[in-house]
Design a protein around this nucleic acid. Structure first.
Length: 111
DNA sequence: AGGGTGACGATCA
DNA sequence: ATGATCGCCACCC
């Protein structure tokens, strides 16, 4: 049994705070990735921590965070819900993935 | 104290 | 494109 159901880890308070801020900074109609949020929060390589924060936290626009390449990494109904939520705010998909070229959020935006 | 785990990511076959 | 494997690392029991 390689997969037993386990509660997901909660991130450290400060790490969680910074990650939450980065997630909340993603505007409606835009998306980012776990790795991208981690880097934006100052923790490159902490993609898994980002996922843990999203799952554990409340009131976050969790649907705007995707796996690399714009792929939804959730399973089952949650994956469908994420897709519906994104489409509801104008995010378009190309097959199974979000059209990152059009929707990926970049902090550095200067025209 | 120590091994298992995961809403990841990159790489290889 | 799909599936396996490895690196990562805070968290859980």
């Amino acid at each position: 049994m390689a997969q037993k159901k386990r509660k997901l880890p909660k991130a450290s308070p400060d790490l969680r705070l910074l990650i939450e801020q980065a997630v909340r900074a993603i505007p409606r109609g835009k998306v980012s990735t776990y790795g991208g949020v981690a880097r934006a929060a100052g923790f490159p390589g902490a993609a898994r921590r980002v996922a843990a924060v999203l799952r554990n936290g409340f009131g976050l626009p969790w649907q705007r965070v995707l796996g690399s390449g714009g792929e939804i990494k959730l399973r089952g109904d949650s994956a469908l819900e994420q897709r519906f939520r994104l489409e509801a705010e104008g995010v378009r998909f190309r097959g199974k993935k979000v059209d990152m070229k059009a929707h990926e959020w970049k902090v550095r935006r200067r025209g």
